[in-house]
Design a protein around this nucleic acid. Sequence first.
DNA 1: ACGAACTCTTGAACACGTTCAAAATCTCGT
DNA 2: ACGAGATTTTGAACGTGTTCAAGAGTTCGT
Lengths: 227, 227
Amino acid sequence: MTLVPEPATRTPKAEQTRQTIVDAAMRLFREGGYDRTTMRAIADEAGVSLGNAYYYFSSKEHLVQAYYLRVQEEHAAAAEAVLDGDATFAGRLRGVLTSWVDVAEPYHEFAGKFFKNAAEPTSPLSPFSTESTAAREDAIGLYRRVVDGSDVKVAKVLREELPELLWLLQMGVVLFWVYDGSPGQRRTRLLVDKAVPLVDRLVRMTRLPVVKGVVDDLLDLLRTLRG
Amino acid sequence: MTLVPEPATRTPKAEQTRQTIVDAAMRLFREGGYDRTTMRAIADEAGVSLGNAYYYFSSKEHLVQAYYLRVQEEHAAAAEAVLDGDATFAGRLRGVLTSWVDVAEPYHEFAGKFFKNAAEPTSPLSPFSTESTAAREDAIGLYRRVVDGSDVKVAKVLREELPELLWLLQMGVVLFWVYDGSPGQRRTRLLVDKAVPLVDRLVRMTRLPVVKGVVDDLLDLLRTLRG
DNA sequence: ACGAACTCTTGAACACGTTCAAAATCTCGT
DNA sequence: ACGAGATTTTGAACGTGTTCAAGAGTTCGT
């Protein structure tokens, strides 16, 4: 698998060609779906040769990665509005999760293809890979803002780790979303609506003395997860 | 996607041919991995024509289901010993999860390849697909036995749903396991060791009046997950 | 035993992702 | 302006999953 040149080394011309190809691919993916869009059609639409498309993107699935990055950026922007307008923990969490579903909706059809790629343990596209560290930390940072800007009261030992736990929650939501075949991903939205009050309740409960042991176990588990 | 004839309608001869093909495929998958094993090679090894292999298995991925079934059967057998020898909930749960890691260990090296294909939502290999319904229900049945044969005290409303929740826990463990590169999947075993006491504690807590609301929320959430 | 209907088998053909060696174009030091 | 080296572009060729139309074999009612 040949690597695409780093952004810093790309000439403006090359960057433009890249964009042309991505745009063509997106257009065709939207019109005909991922499977029925061939690399030949994408190259044609972009006005380049088949081989040239492969010069810029080493596989069809790498084109999907461009989609993924776009979703991340759009989500960060959409979440901003939510974080400005709500001070309750539940409201902020629900808003950030729901805005992800909103932003990602147009991409749902190809998400499966991307997911397939990311699922391979050795893939740099995996959310757990070192290559994804930056993107992952950005996402966790978003949840840190959800927590910090809110009125939530949480057990002290947990506060530091809560953003990462919420990011894991998002990973769960994304997993469900990928498999969600309902129109407009209605079921995922329902899931968010149900999960958020539950999480809100759970988080507030962490200050009760009865659950101290549970919280400690959970943190221990999280550290094991991290390695 | 054409459906394979139902078992009941298959002649003994046809069933034998099916087995021959499955055996050939398993042998080659083990030797060279999923991706590098071609349908042509499988057909050759089985002594049938390419088209004939497709008469029995409508896709390459359908062939892999036999592999999953085998792991599951081995796990069911290994779990039996545990379920006979331990009456504590935590012990039974830990034993069943750990025996899965034991059984699956020889397959870990190329499990990633299979997983990549199973992760695609439209794949019949997905644990959530209709093609996997029977296997899924068997697995949930195993966790029903973990619960029923144990001394665990659990909130009445939860008891019925607990096996499915434990199966979801196993899916989580499997997910972690696939990504676990540590020798002998040491980290996954550690994860099980940490998660089981936590789950045990949580389950017992469900009878406390304080957490009644949480349990109700959780069940509601589970029903949403199921659709 | 005959023929119709069904089941099974075949391999050529197809579509599409991907590779590659060669050609075209560009860059830059002299 | 020149040429060497790097970058970009090309499309034919390849491998593989899958399809399909045609043929061989089997079953069964009469």
